[in-house]
Design a protein around this nucleic acid. Structure first.
Length: 412
DNA sequence: TATTGCGGGTATG
DNA sequence: CATACCCGCAATA
């Protein structure tokens, strides 16, 4: 009875549920821009992942224009320990891992379940820390550091004049180093709910000395518009986006209770209450967890002036120019969700700043134009159940997207 | 070298 | 029994 699937949510937060198409490459890979590590729940049907938080500068330094350092914790334990021995790319101070305690004091957990044509997702807990770099940004930063190290070692004089050697061997200089940490820009507005930081600093560094990286990216546009009150296009996008984006569900349990009865490392409503000490799940029906404007049935992953990936992804019905306007030059962008693999050229500023990229617009994606569900699904559907009442209640589509979805899913 | 998923195992309440 | 988390392995990127 699934009426429609959601566009992939890059930053799922709070207690949300999504249904993705099994064709969705991001969903297939259980991706998130939060740094999520696998957690053993002793249930092979349901994949559980928990949030690692964010790595910050322990000196709380600020880069230019007040930006903060929010590095992506390495997923691998060993790599993470190594990472924490490294130094802040901005001030060379020690780094510190801020653990996620958004789910009753424990890390936010994400659950993934494959069932036939769909991939069911559920998030539990609201991240109580800033967003880390995306995977893409972290990779770009690593590449740049590597390149920079290589180029520095090739020219010792330059190295000596510009760099300060970090403990980990990277040559660093505030003048010359690429600083590609994640910016908690305007989309982290909340101090009251999730503790997100405020940083509306516009970014406007010229891009030169670009390094082109060719890589396959799956995430859609994560564009963050930096001039929220000025950019009317983004507001339009948001208005559109909020009608079509994720659903917030306030009760019920998405995940099928354990069949085995031995392990079920996922909560239910009862546990939810118990863990959070709340009378029930947070009331996101009327207010967005992070932002102080009313909600109806839609989620507000996207604050009004911003268009994150979801917004871009809604541009499938012919608003190319708007989609372009929503593209944030400093966020790596890529595939439309639902989507397919996009090969992008990631342009990285060696003089010091932000990665950007070129991308194909959704309209150009042959995948979207020729969708035909034909895969065989191997995972059992027996006994699998989704909280469809809630799903239906929460769903809403605008006209354009309804049309689009009809095109994509003509049989439903 | 890091990511991802799996699963055995332990600890705690 | 539910939950969290540690660890190592294997496949993959």
């Amino acid at each position: 009875d699934v009426k429609t699937t959601d566009w992939f949510q890059e930053w799922p937060d709070s207690y949300v549920k999504h249904i993705y198409s099994s064709e969705d490459r991001n969903a297939q890979r259980h991706l998130s821009s939060w740094a999520m590590r696998n957690t053993n729940n002793h249930n092979s049907r349901i994949l559980k992942k928990s949030c690692l938080g964010v790595v910050v500068c322990s000196l709380d330094c600020s880069a230019e224009e007040g930006r903060k350092i929010y590095l992506r914790p390495a997923i691998c334990d060993k790599a993470r320990q190594k990472q924490q021995r490294k130094r802040c790319p901005n001030c060379n101070g020690p780094l510190k891992l801020i653990p996620c305690r958004g789910h009753g004091g424990f890390p936010v957990t994400n659950f993934w379940r494959h069932d036939g044509r769909f991939i069911f997702f559920q998030s539990k807990g609201a991240h109580d820390h800033p967003r880390p770099e995306t995977k893409l940004e972290a990779e770009a930063r690593r590449s740049m550091q590597k390149s920079h190290t290589a180029s520095s070692s090739a020219s010792p004089k330059l190295k000596k004049s510009l760099g300060t050697k970090s403990l980990t061997g990277e040559t660093q200089s505030q003048e010359s180093l690429p600083l590609t940490w994640s910016y908690q820009e305007s989309f982290q507005l909340s101090n009251s709910c999730n503790g997100h930081l405020i940083d509306n600093t516009p970014q406007k560094k010229p891009l030169d000395n670009c390094l082109s990286l060719t890589k396959n990216y799956y995430f859609g546009r994560t564009s963050q518009l930096v001039e929220p009150l000025v950019n009317s296009e983004s507001t339009k996008l948001y208005e559109k986006c909020k009608l079509t984006s994720s659903r917030i569900c306030t009760s019920g349990e998405l995940l099928q209770p354990s069949h085995s009865g031995v392990y079920s490392d996922y909560g239910d409503l009862q546990n939810w209450n118990r863990n959070t000490g709340l009378g029930g799940p947070p009331d996101y029906d009327n207010y967005c967890p992070g932002y102080s404007f009313p909600l109806t049935s839609w989620s507000c992953d996207i604050p009004p002036p911003l268009s994150c990936m979801e917004a871009g992804n809604q541009q499938l019905s012919g608003e190319k120019s708007v989609a372009k306007a929503s593209y944030h030059p400093f966020r790596p962008n890529s595939a439309v969700s639902g989507g397919d693999l996009y090969e992008e050229k990631l342009h990285v500023d060696f003089n010091g700043y932000f990665p950007t990229s070129r991308y194909h617009f959704p309209q150009e994606d042959p995948f979207l134009l020729s969708y035909t569900p034909h895969h065989q699904y191997s995972l059992p559907t027996k006994g699998s159940k989704w909280d469809l009442d809630e799903e239906v209640k929460c769903m809403s589509l605008d006209h354009d997207n309804s049309e689009m979805l009809l095109n994509i899913y003509p049989l439903r």
